[in-house]
């Protein structure tokens, strides 16, 4: 019986990793679902939903060559998730400021307290190494509107950060 797995791969970023990995996955008869690849601090990282009907040990073996070639760290786990379970975000949050510890913890604690379900999050350290800035973009769903939620988020940030909260006005045509 076919089963969905979450395949996570992390390693030093090099061109050609995605092509090599997905070729092996295709060759061993697996099917890909949703996936997200991101380069974090020069590291390659990808999470792939992989559907496979055989022994997961065989899947790992099929990938062993490419894992070795690119010095990747592999994690494979069986998941209960399925396709076509997208949740639609209604709010988009941007937070930025001089980089310091605690920005994410403070802001996301306030989000959680207010029932905000984070569906997508990307954070980055930009600026220069002497004056780094932290940039966080979050999308999610919350039943509270901007007028209600934004002051609570601003109050939660212990030190000055810029916080913008916008509604995502989805248009289904």
């Amino acid at each position: 019986m076919k089963q969905w797995y979450m395949l996570t791969l992390v390693g030093e970023d090099r061109a050609g990793i995605v092509a090599a990995v997905t070729r092996e996955l295709f060759n061993c008869g697996s099917n890909l679902g949703e996936a997200a690849m991101v380069r974090l601090g020069g590291n390659f990282s990808v999470m792939l939903m992989v559907e496979y009907g055989g022994d997961p040990e065989l899947l790992q073996q099929a990938l062993s060559g490419v894992i070795e070639r690119f010095s990747l760290n592999l994690h494979l786990m069986q998941i209960s998730g399925e396709l076509h379970h997208h949740l639609e975000p209604n709010l988009q949050l941007t937070v930025y400021g001089a980089d310091r510890t605690g920005i994410v913890a403070e802001v996301t604690a306030a989000l959680a307290e207010n029932g905000f379900h984070i569906l997508d999050m990307r954070t980055d350290v930009a600026g220069s190494s002497s004056e780094p800035i932290y940039v966080m973009q979050i999308e999610g769903f919350c039943s509270l509107g901007v007028a209600e939620l934004l002051p609570r988020l601003k109050a939660a940030a212990a030190q000055q950060v810029e916080i913008a909260l916008r509604e995502i006005d989805l248009m289904i045509g």
Partner: peptide
Amino acid sequence: VGREGCMSVPDYT
């Protein structure tokens, strides 16, 4: 920039 979906493309925005 705006977020769009379509009756002819279900489950994607």
